[in-house]
Amino acid sequence: MATQPATLSPSSERSFLQRIRSGDAVAHTLTGMAASTILAVTILLAYHLWSGSSLPRSAFGWSFVTGSDWDPVAEKFGALPFIFGTLTTSLLSLLIAVPVGLGAAIFLAELAPRGASDALTFMIELLAAVPSVIYGLLGIFLLVPFLQSTLVPVLVSTLGFLPIFQGQFFGVSVFSAGIILAIMIVPFIISVSREVLLAVPQDQREAALALGSTKWESTWKIVVPYAMRGIMGSVFLALARALGETMAVTMVIGNKPQIATSLLAPGYSIAAVIANEFAEATGNMHQQVLIELGLVLFALTVLINGAARLLILSTKAGGK
């Protein structure tokens, strides 16, 4: 109905009413408004984080991000141990989650029978919906005892010469937090990557097979590179989740603001310290410092996402 007049008469002759009826203007306005809420929320967030942390910004300046003391009683604050903890746990989780997630996505999209693939994907999406406090409890009651009794002794006896696997292990540590985060973000990587891989046009695969490549060669050399941008997108979505994850991390990281070379040592993350201390932060300075930590996390996320965009752009240029 709406397309008929458009093909019959030139668009310049369409009256305002016709254009309204065709829905263009309405859709344009509505979707535009929806998009602008995102912009508004982001600006509002940045503004509030900025204006809510004026006290510590003027008191500490840049030493806030380079200092490593955290003493709410003496009102001495340095955020470096938290930044360090957030970055190491997130990176560690990516190191574990990317190979597993990508492998699983390739299997589900390319190799598994369609029925099994759909069933497994349904379960994976269920995993993504589990509240993070549940993962934290799993961490405390299942993962930590397993690490203590089995995995870490093995790691220490085989890789103990590396500084990152030295020192006393209490169960809660940067390492435990990284593993819990990996478990939490794997579903994101699998489910998005699988969709992206499935969206690769069938003729790409057929062309590769026709040229005599094996199934695996067509998958690894043709399909995966074709879908690389989408896969990276899924990884950065997962990374964003890891950077901001709060409950599960604070339950297994040990909550000790220190910068240790060993992954087995306890640490602390930005989101965890905000969640831990905000409710009982009575002084203005303490409260505002926690808001400034929020600003730091926001800036970190923006920086990492910016870097991610650049990386994606460069793969496109290099890959094709």
């Binding site: 003391d69 955290w70 003493d71 709410p72 009683v73 003496a74 009982e280 932060a281 009575t282």
Partner: peptide, 8 residues
């Protein structure tokens, strides 16, 4: 360390 609800 001193006294407080959150301390170093």
């Amino acid at each position: 360390p001193g006294k407080g609800s959150a301390i170093n």
